[in-house]
Design a protein around this nucleic acid. Structure first.
Length: 567
DNA sequence: GCCGTTTTCGGCCCGACTGTTTTCAGTCG
């Protein structure tokens, strides 16, 4: 797929034009095209071949021609023309806070700045501050921006962000002046990683709430503490994390929550829509002329635009507004729809809980079932089960199940897909099980696609676990053609896993949505080895919602009987 | 460069903050 390459080119083109000082709207158009290509689930080459490029909203004849040009010749003339005149490193400087395209442009023109080092020099020798429109304070801010840029904070995994926000919110609830309170930003939209942590609240006395906020025990540094905004750095074992709190007036809470939840693209489309109806949306409310007609809660804001409340996880301008207008929005899955966890490990392999304890935890979570899927024999490092040990485990499960009236432990396995695509156990063993999840754990570069396709030919396989193999913070994943895996799953009627382990989240939201479009079933499993890990199901549900999944798309939204019947 | 239930031309999201160019440009979210 060339989608990402093209997205990158258009984003760079936008940056380059901005530094050149070209018209703002052209830049916006290129950046929008970049985002659309980044989000697109279809292969852009297929779209181009069928001459449908211009059907994609945001892509007109100019960009469509450039996409065609790239697909045919491997380059875009316009891009080469524009970018060749600008030093590559100059584009990267746009990421520095408090330093924008205009300043980069004059620094380049007037002082010959080409690199970060050049920039530092003109700051030190005072020549930058002497430029028209700049001054000492501005340069001081740019200097701070460079510092932050150089110790570039990596993004925060959603799991960690959720834990932090939970603690901070618990702390904020103790402030006597606090009113309504919610996470906002990409955290509320459940993006798999977030840049910082945003919280929105109302309160009778803003500055007192902020004062309480900055007394949170984990606070390391206070960046700002005014009447409406507080910003702190919290120290965690992985470094400092930024948490922002905004206080708004009670009547504007809904509008502010809508605004601060984003995404930016979603909000821009919403505002354009409002404008065409003669309305104006801001973080203070929806206005008709001077008159405020909505803003107390989010539902109201959407309602005056003729829309149902769009779930935060869908707010990415990926077609949700258009569908909402036609009342065709998917009824995305809710955490309460989940009837069980379909992938957990016990003491029998490398987990840290007995099967009995796992069952107890699952019952406390109001699940109807839990599937024990320990590793198979060839995964030595995880103490994988031999056939004999598996049979023993099956017996233990059968005995335990006699205790429960309305709860079931499912006999399962996470069976390895070996180097030749064979499974780690013969069929006569797999036949004894309720659920068979097949997974690659070795040979990440060795014919992974073929091996997975072969594994799916076995009728006893229920699903493929963590199909891409990526670890968000550590590795990209297998050399695997997921398009082919999806097609294979469709052909063979196999489910694919949404592994909810915080560092996997695999399949990701884009492939989930594609799987849904192909009517492939998804099973969500936490893959946990520890008690607390069962809670990662909430992450799984969040990502499932971002993939537009509904109850009917997810195997573990089925009750026990239906699940087993359709296995 | 994109787009059309006002439009094939003339618009394109909104507001806050900051610093500097004392009236607004640049940057951010």
């Amino acid at each position: 797929m060339k989608n990402k390459e093209l997205a990158w080119i258009f984003a760079r083109l936008g940056d380059a034009l901005e530094i050149k000082g070209e018209s703002g709207f052209k830049i916006i158009a290129y950046r929008k095209a970049a985002r659309i290509l980044e989000d697109l689930t279809e292969d852009i080459e297929a779209v181009a071949q069928e001459d449908r490029l211009k059907e994609i909203p945001g892509i007109g004849s100019g960009i469509a021609n450039k996409i065609d040009e790239y697909l045919q010749t491997g380059q875009i003339k316009k891009y080469r023309e524009v970018v060749s005149r600008i030093p590559e490193e100059l584009l990267d400087l746009l990421e520095i806070q408090n330093l924008g395209a205009k300043t980069i442009h004059v620094a380049h023109q007037e002082l010959g700045v080409k690199t970060l080092d050049d920039l530092k020099k003109v700051i030190e020798d005072g020549s930058l501050a002497k430029l028209y429109g700049l001054g000492e304070k501005k340069v001081e801010n740019i200097k701070k921006g460079i510092e932050i840029y150089e110790q570039a904070q990596e993004r925060i995994p959603i799991f960690e962000a959720l834990n932090i926000v939970e603690e901070v919110i618990a702390h904020l609830k103790k402030a006597p002046q606090i009113g309504r309170l919610s996470p906002a930003g990409s955290l509320r939209r459940m993006k798999e990683t977030v840049g910082d942590i945003d919280i929105l609240a109302t309160g009778k006395n803003g500055s007192r709430v902020i004062k309480h906020f900055i007394q949170f025990p984990g606070v390391n540094r206070v960046l700002a503490a005014g009447e409406t905004k507080g910003s702190v750095m919290i120290s965690t074992e992985r470094g400092e994390r930024q948490v922002d709190l905004r206080i708004v007036d009670e009547p504007a809470y809904g509008a502010a929550l809508q605004y601060f939840t984003g995404s930016k693209a979603h909000n821009i489309k919403l505002r354009a829509m409002a404008r065409s109806k003669g309305l104006k949306i801001s973080e203070y409310g929806v206005f008709k002329g001077q008159k405020k007609i909505a803003g107390f809660d989010e539902k109201e804001v959407y309602k005056v635009l003729g829309l149902p409340l769009i779930p935060p996880e869908l707010r990415e301008d990926r077609g949700e507004i258009e569908l909402a207008l036609k009342s065709l929005l998917p009824q995305v899955v809710d955490y309460s729809d989940i009837k069980g966890d379909l992938h957990v490990h016990s003491l029998h392999s490398d987990g840290h809980m007995s099967i009995e304890d796992l069952a107890g935890l699952a019952r406390a979570m109001k699940y109807e079932y839990i599937a024990i899927c320990d590793h198979s024999q060839s995964v030595k490092y995880a103490h994988g089960l031999s056939p004999e040990r598996l049979l023993k485990q099956i017996k233990e499960i059968q005995e335990l199940n006699q205790r429960y009236k309305s709860f079931r432990i499912l006999k399962g396995i996470e069976v390895d897909i070996l180097q030749d695509g064979q499974l780690d156990f013969p069929d006569k063993i797999l036949k004894e099980l309720d659920i068979v999840v097949a997974a690659v754990h070795k040979g990440f570069k060795k014919k992974v696609t073929e091996r997975i396709l072969k594994a799916m030919e076995n009728p006893l396989v229920t699903a493929i676990a963590h199909p891409s193999g990526r670890l968000i913070s550590r590795r990209d994943g297998y050399e695997v053609d997921l398009e082919k895996v999806l097609q294979g799953a469709k052909n063979k009627g196999k489910a694919l896993e949404l592994n909810a382990f915080y560092d996997r989240l695999d399949l990701n939201e884009f492939y989930l949505r594609k799987a849904k479009e192909m009517e492939i079933k998804i099973c969500i499993g936490t893959d946990t080895h520890y008690p607390a890990g069962l809670q990662m199901m909430r992450l799984g549900v969040g990502i499932a919602r971002r993939g537009w999944l509904e109850r009917k798309d997810i195997l573990n939204c089925r009750g026990y009987k239906e699940l087993i019947r359709n296995k």
